[in-house]
Structures are given as structure tokens and as C-alpha cells.
Amino acid sequence: MPLVGLEELRAAQRRIAGVAVRTPLMPAPWAEDGNRRLWLKPENLQPTGAFKIRGAYNRLAQLSAAERERGVVAQSSGNHAQAIAYAAKMLGIKAVIVMPDTSPAVKVESTRSYGAEVLLVAPERREDTPGELRERHGYVWVPPFDDLDIIAGQGTVGLEIGEDAPDELDTVLVPVSGGGLISGVAAAIKLTTPGVRVIGVEPELAADAQASLRAGERLSWPVADTYRTIADGLRTPALGVLPFEHVQAYVDDIVTVTEEEIRDTVAVLARRGRLVAEPSGAVATAGYLHRADELRGRVFAAVVSGGNLEPKLLSELLAA
């Protein structure tokens, strides 16, 4: 199974320049604990509010003229949806997005605002519907994570961390869902800054990736189980095939955080870090705040992967 290489990562970095924001690596002095320090990579500052624009644009920009004419179809709970819609609008491509009907309204509305056609389906239909549309209309399928171009685009997050990090950096924390982000980041870190550990963080209620890494095989969790977590962007029931290969090759470990810890971290990032993070975007920071002792690192970087959350939910979490 092919793994993304440094050449593909560098090419993606050049391709998305001027489209995706080169987000800063921000110190978080409020999170210092003795000799332990934290840096944040705020991907919530991207045009669509999440890192997904990197992979989406990298993939769509490489479509042939004939493929662009056909249009694209994707499925997502929200952040990949918005990224595909945004990139497609920039490139003049028709986009049809399948979203579970449990998706936050703010993500659905944002996806439509970029001109995409949105189809809301039951969560158990989100995987099958795009294939049916592709067969019926000839759309080009753009997967959310199981694609080398998507992985390479997301991996530019890791290239930037490696370029901007202090020499003392020893641990990078990354949210895990279908695995596109952690695959790209882990490849970039291991290929450019060897010796730095890459650790995934996911909710206890959707810990299929941790189970898969420790079992040495891809395991799938029932949708009914993964949909219990507040982190709606991390409810994918299994790692993708390509991401699993990258996780096995490059990821040092995966830890989990509780729902209470995720909720608490959203509030901490807003109050102390002045960053609006959705629950999915807060899990890596939660890993630092609540698992640092077991991770045994000294200088951490955590990816704040997205900030698209309902205002009402943010208000509730801040009031808790």
C-alpha cells in the first residue's frame, strides 16, 4: 500500500499556497506546567474554519478538464463538506455533498453558502449514497480521507509545524477520525523532524483508531456507538485503508479523552487561548491538558483542527 512521500507533501504545499492560510504555531503560556510547554496550531483560522481546505484544494486542483466538467461528489459531517464546496467554487466545479442529517446546522448552512448542492441523509446512509450518485450522474468521488492527495494536503499542517517548531519540540498531538489528518501530519513530521513523536487523540466514545492500532488491524465501531460523542467530526466508524497504513508506519500511539474533558477544553481554549474550537478541534489540546503525565513529553504541539460549532453549544460550554 503506497504511503505519501516528502515530494508529494512539498508539491501539495506549493499547490495550496495562497488558498489555505499558513496558520501560526502559537505559544500557550497559560498551559505551562513546570517544564512542560504547549504550542497550538490553530487550523480553525482557515477560510472554511478547519484544516480540510488543504486536502480538498490539493485534490480538486489536480482534476483534469474532463473531470471538472463532470462535477464532484463528497460525503462529510461538515468540515470536508465545506472545504470541497469552497474549493469547487474557486475552481468552477459543480459540487454535490452528502451530509448526515445530524450535522450541525452551521456546517450545513456554510456548505450551501459556497454554492454546493447538499443532500441530507440518515447517518447509516452517508457511506452508500455518494456511490449511487456517482453511478447515476458520473460525478468524480472525492473521499474525505482515504486518498493520497487528500492525505498530502492535510500533511502540510505537519510540514508547517516542523518548520516553525522550537528545537525542543518532542510531541505532536493530532485529532483522529478517518485518519487523513494524522496520516499526513505524521508522515510530514517523521520525514522532516525525526525523533519527534506523533500521538493521535480521539474520544473514548469513538476510539476505533486506538483499538485498530493496538490490534494491528482495521476495526470498525457501530455508527450508533461513535455517534454518542459530542465531537461530531470524529464519529467516523473506522480508519480509512490508506490512513491505517500511515498510522501503523508513523504514529507512535493514540490516546483517548472523555466527553467531560472535551467539553472542558472547548471552554479553556475560548477563555484562555482566545480560540473558538469545536469539540472535534479541541481533542488534541484535551490530550495535553488531561493526558500529559502519561504521554511523558516536555514540549508539545497540538492541532486545533476546526472551529465550526453552533453558537448555542459554545454558549452552553462556556457557561458550564
Rank of each mutant, 00 (worst) to 15 (best):
V185R: 08
E202K: 09
E217P: 00
E278S: 10
V157R: 06
L213Y: 05
R197N: 07
E245G: 09
E163T: 06
V276T: 00
E204S: 00
V266G: 04
V251K: 12
V157K: 02
R274F: 15
L205A: 13
Q210M: 14
E245V: 09
T226H: 11
H246S: 01
V198F: 07
Y227I: 12
R197A: 13
T229C: 06
Q210W: 14
E163M: 09
D208P: 10
V276F: 07
L169P: 10
G200Q: 03
G180H: 03
E278R: 03
A286F: 10
T193V: 06
P166I: 02
G200V: 05
G179N: 04
G281K: 08
A207H: 11
Q248R: 15
L213N: 00
P203S: 02
D208S: 14
L219D: 05
G158P: 09
D170S: 02
L269K: 11
V247E: 02
Y288N: 07
A211H: 09
K190V: 03
E259D: 11
V157Q: 02
D208I: 05
R235D: 12
T192A: 00
V251C: 12
Y288T: 07
Q210G: 14
A224D: 14
L205I: 01
I161M: 14
A215H: 09
T192K: 12
R274S: 14
E245Y: 00
E260G: 13
E160N: 15
E217H: 12
S183G: 01
S177I: 03
G195F: 02
D252F: 07
A277Q: 08
P279H: 12
T285N: 08
S177T: 12
R291H: 10
A209I: 03
A209H: 05
P166A: 01
A206I: 00
V251H: 08
E294F: 08
A209L: 04
L169C: 09
W221R: 15
P166F: 01
E204N: 03
L191E: 13
L234I: 10
P279A: 09
V223C: 07
R228W: 03
R291V: 01
Y288E: 05
A284G: 04
T236Y: 11
A165I: 07
